[in-house]
Design a protein around this nucleic acid. Structure first.
Lengths: 223, 223
DNA sequence: CACCGGTTGTCAGCGGTTTGTCAGCGACGC
DNA sequence: GCGTCGCTGACAAACCGCTGACAACCGGTG
């Protein structure tokens, strides 16, 4: 569970990060609206905790821009105490929940978990790239309409590539995505998974760019 | 949109009813926990607004009982201002959202609408998936017309799968659904319940996707 | 209060699957 | 043609999910 915290107050941000990390999130923190907007527009988070009062770019604006761009991750906004106007506006602008400041960390965590749980059904579960279709609800994968039986690890790797279509993903990045900080594993582990995947998908799906990494081929054929 | 308001303060109840009715709800009001429990257990509401401080039967208790009975309508709880303990407990007990008192009516309405939007589609008391039919009113289950005798826990698990048809549900999610945050229990508890269920339903109902979770098989047969 | 039936969590053991490693091989780039 | 990088098949270890047995628990009953 990757979580973005956007909050300009160092102290509060640190507290939130600690609380969220303690309950299974990997949280990253940004302190101003512009960086947040950029990061939220390019990176994939499972949850964003967004303070409304931010330097450079107002939180509400960031929220609206993300939604206008079609970004659909769950967003929890932090509002000033009693400012119910912001809350209503925030919900209408596409926030999934709000938390009035000040709040207890336990509450933040409870809400964060509830949001993530809820969101897993709401986001578009079906992604495709050319002949390849993956369904994150059924955890299923098909190529040209043919269903494949896929293991969890293979699925995660493939989903990551689909999420990063038309980009070459370095094996080290895949290594980190699959195993987190546990660096006990070799890059060869990734190669092995890719090999098993290719045996199932057939050729023409996962490509290799020697020295750089892996990518999904489908889109390039069309050129 | 049928809405139940459970609130002992006449004034507040009237205000809420007015606000909700103004935005398209048909609201009914009850003033104590016992009547609420009974009504919520037998009638079908699209939304329940539940005050926690109630005469005769505490709101939290009502909430827990409903959820234990498998009632799954969206529930918005009203908590005393600052009582974050209640909020967390309430969310964990199965409330879908909370609103700290005092609140603005605009806010109540915004939240109520959001909840109903979120919940639509999973409210019918009788649900089926292929040969399987479950009735959340009578807590009954049948497969191919044959009635099964089912325990409460088994029922809740099965109902959860039915509400998440065509989605693979991770055992950890089931664990959380069945036991809340009480993490004293092992995933094996879920496996045991599934095993007992399968013995009753026969094969072809609950499927396993190794490494991912459980799902209802019925719909897939058509492939 | 003892007993009983039904329900549920835990435990241990099993079989099959998944996955990391290793070593050897192929192929690509220079 | 050579070195490096990536691929692959084999293998063993770890893991996952299933099951039967058992014990704890609960509510009802004699």
């Amino acid at each position: 569970m990757r979580c973005l915290i956007v909050e300009d107050d160092d102290r509060i941000a640190a507290d939130m990060a600690a609380a969220l990390n303690a309950s299974g999130f990997r949280s990253e923190r940004l302190a101003d609206g512009e960086m947040a907007w950029f990061a939220g527009g390019t990176e994939d988070y499972d949850l964003v905790v967004l303070d409304l009062g931010l330097p450079l770019l107002d939180g509400m604006t960031v929220l609206k821009r993300w939604r206008a761009e079609g970004r659909n991750m769950p967003i929890l906004i932090l509002t000033a105490r009693g400012d119910w106007n912001d809350r209503v506006e925030g919900i209408d602008a596409g926030a999934d929940d709000y938390l009035p400041k000040p709040f207890r960390m336990e509450e933040l965590v409870a809400r964060a978990r509830a949001l993530v749980r809820r969101a897993s059904g709401r986001m578009n579960p079906i992604q495709q790239a050319g002949e390849l279709v993956i369904d994150t609800n059924r955890q299923s994968v098909s190529v040209a309409g043919r269903q494949l039986s896929i293991t969890p690890l293979e699925f995660r790797l493939l989903a990551y590539l689909v999420y990063n279509t038309a980009r070459v993903v370095p094996p080290t990045e895949l290594l980190e995505h699959l195993y987190g900080d546990d660096d006990s594993r070799d890059v060869n582990a990734v190669e092995a998974v890719v090999a098993r995947l290719r045996r199932k998908t057939g050729p023409g799906i996962i490509g290799t760019r020697r020295g750089f990494g892996y990518y999904l081929e489908q889109l390039e054929q069309r050129r």
